[in-house]
Amino acid sequence: MISGLRCYWKYLKISLKGQMEYRGSFILQMIGHFFLTLLDFLGIWVLFNQFGKLKDWGLEEVALLYGTITIAFAISDTLSRGLDYCAEYVRTGEFDRFLIRPRSLLLQIIGVEFTLRRFGRLFQGLFVLAWALITLNIHWSLPKVLLMFFSIGGGTCLFVGLWIMQATISFWTVQGLEVVNITTYGGVETAQYPMSIYEKWFQNFFIFIIPLACVNFFPMLEILERPDPLAFPAWMHWVSPAAGILFLIASIFLFRFGVRHYRSTGS
């Protein structure tokens, strides 16, 4: 495991060096990504400007939900883009090469690429979060600060878990299944708004099956000191981001199970 992590770190450095060779292009891409992802927030602003309120939620409170989930998504996206190529490796048979190396499989695959330009989204999330924190007037305490980091950490784990599951499916389908993007890109979009505006079945899906509400909506309710419209107990809001970590662990087990079922395409 330790040597695997060291190996991942080396991969990371090589990937960074490679990207820094094309510095101009890299900066352009990052700025492009910043504005592209900022559009999502401008869309939310347009709606608030037109409608005034969303149930009893204001733009600043939604910006807090938006900022935290965007940061979590951006970190996971930067770290684990390599998983995107997994389906391609399985299809071409190149996956066999990873299998014969005596290092952690998952870290090798994740380490294939470390996409720095995706930091554009991270900066954008930080930017929106900073605005939310300045305008909101939150009564901060140490537990709340910790909960904030716990929420972002749990969210990052959840998204990495989703990317891993997406890659795992390719052991059976031998091609990428883009439909899974509904849970990642669609998930971010969903979690940008308070969970309470959605239909019951939809809420349950994002609480119990893909625990997005657990890593974002519930902890943010505590930070904002709002009553829970879904009526879950308060202790649950404090521990719920752990669901993201459990999800990641489950996805790693699923990946290992998938690898055992891997049959090379032989080409």
């Binding site: 037109q50 409608f51 969303l54 149930k55 969903t190 708004y193 939809f202």
Partner: peptide
């Protein structure tokens, strides 16, 4: 998703 979001917006305004 867009429908659920906009229906909520309409309900509050």
């Amino acid at each position: 998703i867009r429908l659920m979001i906009l229906i909520s917006f309409f309900g509050a305004t």
